[in-house]
Amino acid sequence: MSDNLIEIHDLSFAYGKRLVLKGIDLTARRGQVIAIMGISGGGKTTLLRLIGGSLKPTSGVLKVDGVDMSGLDRDALYQLRRRMGMLFQFGALFTDMSVFDNVAFPLREHSDLPEEMVRDLVLMKLNAVGLRGAHDLMPSELSGGMARRVALARAIALEPSLILYDEPFAGLDPISLGVTGNLIRRLTDTLGVTSIVVTHDIQESLRMVDYVYFVSEGVIAAQGTPDELRASTEPFVHQFVHGEENGPVPFHYPAPPYADELELAA
C-alpha cells in the first residue's frame, strides 16, 4: 500500500474552453490534514470536486488510494466513494430528516445492519462531534456550526479513509470556527483518515494543518508547511498570510484608468 492516499500529477481541467486548472501537482499522505487555499474563484473547489469524482480531469493523472479516477465507470466510482466522506459548505443536511436519520442515512443505504446497531453507531458518531443530545432535532433547528458538525458526523458514518471539506469555516463565529478546526484535527488523528480542506481562512488553517497548497489562477502558486509559509517572503504568500490589500493580488478588478472613466482628463 502506497504511503500517499492522493497523487495528482500534471492535472488540467477546463470548463468548455476555459482552462481552470493547469498542471497541478499535489500529494497527500495518509493521516495528514492538507489545506488547499487561495483566493475565491481560483479553482480550489474545482480541484476538490475532481478528487471527489464529480468532475473528470481534462488531462493528467489523478489517483485516489491507487485508483486512477479518470477511467472509472459509475459503479466503480460509487464503490470508491463509499470510502470518502465529504463535508459541504453549509452542511447540506437533508432537511426532511432528523439529525439522527441524517447520520443514519449512509448506514441504512449501504448496509443491512439491524436497527439497534445503526442506533449505536449513529450515537457514537454524534458523540464524536459533541451533538449526541441533539439527535432528534430537525436541521432547521440547528445553528450553522452545529449543522456542519452533524454533517461531519454523517461524513464519517461509514468510516472513510478520506474526508473532503468544502469551506468548513465559511460563515462561522470565532468559537464555532475554533471548535470545527479542532474537530477536523482530532478526527483525522483518531480515525487515521486523510483530510483535504478547501478554505481561505488562513489563520485557522495554519494552526491545525500539516501542509498547505496555494492555488492561484489555476496553478500551485506556493506550498509548504505552516511554519515555512509564515516565514515565507514570497510576495503572494506574504500578502495572503497577512491579509494585505496591496500585493500581487490586486484590490481592483481590471478596469480602464480611473481618471479616464470619470472623464477627468479633459
Binding site: 464529480s54 466510482l77 463509499r82 470518502m84 465529504m86 447540506a92 449512509p106 473532503l164
Partner: peptide, 14 residues
C-alpha cells in the same frame, strides 16, 4: 440548491 443532491451523490447514493 442546498447541495443535498450533490451530498447524496458523494455518499454513493444515486
Amino acid at each position: 440548491a442546498t447541495e443535498q443532491l450533490a451530498a447524496m451523490e458523494m455518499m454513493a447514493v444515486d
